[in-house]
Design a protein around this nucleic acid. Sequence first.
RNA 1: GGCGAGGUACCCAAGCCUGGCCCAAGGGGCUGGUCUUGAAAACCAGUGUGCUCCGCACUCGCGGGUUCAAAUCCCGUCCUCGCCA
Length: 428
Amino acid sequence: MLDPKLIREKPDEVKANLAKRKKPEYIEMVDEFLEVDRIWRETDVIVNELRKQRNIYAKNIAKAKGDEKQKLIADMKDINSKLSDSEKIYNEKQDRRQFLLDRIPNLLHDSVPYGEDDEGNVPIRSWGEKPEFNFTPLDHHELLDILDIAELERARKTSGSRFYYLKNDAVILEMALMRYAIDILRKHDVEIFSTPSMVRERMLYGTGFLPTGAEDIYKIEGEDLSLIGTSEVTLAGLHTDEVFTEDELPKHYAGFSNNYRTEASATTKDDKGIFRVHEFKKVEMFTYSLPENSEAEQERMFAIAEEIFKGLDLHYQVVNICTGDIGAVAAKKYDIEVWLPGQNRYREVVSCSNCTDYQTRRLKIRYREKEGSPIKGLVHTLNSTALTTTRPMIAILENFQQEDGTVLIPNALVPYTGFDKISPVNKK
RNA sequence: GGCGAGGUACCCAAGCCUGGCCCAAGGGGCUGGUCUUGAAAACCAGUGUGCUCCGCACUCGCGGGUUCAAAUCCCGUCCUCGCCA
């Protein structure tokens, strides 16, 4: 949520910023907000004045006696009827105002490149090199089959499309990836959490996954609980309504969790294998920062994400996400796109966002100089993938495949897996 | 799941039974000021949100209701803690 005062006081700046997102409805929302906000405030004055009258009368009635009291009570009823009329308008305008605030996205940082859609994302650097093959590299789903380390067809039977079983060496590899990432984070003094997989609605609203985006979330029937799509939600929610002191910040957190996504709006192109799935495990970095430090914190966080992928010897490029592709919550976002030989293209494996105060305004997470001193403002939040299970696994399979189908395990993972390759098995 | 006790501002906490100087006592912390060479102590002021900001209104977990008037009474609901299952 944006600061309503900012929209009111600098509407042209806000609109110019939102215009970069190439969605005219945002501009319309701002215009409507300005109008609704104006009426809301005018009504607020009227309501306040009537309430003041009511309070004065209430006190006088308490003191008055007999006929005088009866007269005052009659007058009071008149005031109350006027008040209830004004309050009705006031509440309507307030609801509409909030509705709009809930849907206007965050302001973009100046360094976000302009672009219409994901074609406009700007690669800013790359690391490593594409592997050379003197044979035609296989797709990851073919490799999963040859190596016999997953059940894809049968997963359709038990759970439906976009679910999967991993088995044997793939299970070890999955855990190894998580442990590998966690150890790197611990080296950087990040606090590690294993978080709930379900949260209350308030947390999803607070992090910006609601009200827009409800179709991507699995909701538990009859409960105020939904499955998280990322531990960003649980880690952001952790300090809801709290007030940090400056010396407590930044908080460098990371969450390990299962993640659930309906992928309702996804295309069917990535259906094969485990590229786009409803459930996966992830280590997610999450930072609470002073406003003035959030830009530096984003660079710091992203450097750790890169370190993780460098350690896996995976060739990748870094992309600055453009105005047309960035989400509603982020002010600025970097992705890591890893090279997938089986698809012959780069694919997203990391997303690192500075959400500034967009989430903390909703979650009411603030800071003050020290214990007991007045509140100074809202903290900034940032999140970044550290490592997921499925896509990095795909990258390892496709990049380190040998002609006979054997897949070599990156050196950094061997201490965690206990094996340095996965070889094809002869299935009956 | 059942029963019980609770939820008051940054923290602690009174008020609730018996509705009305509660525009929420008091304490702590913090900020500013007076004083001091400096500090402590003491004293004064400030310390939730909104607005047309020397003034008002809102805020007692949340949402309804009763009433001229609700932190206080009623209903619903969420959460926390305890005991039981």
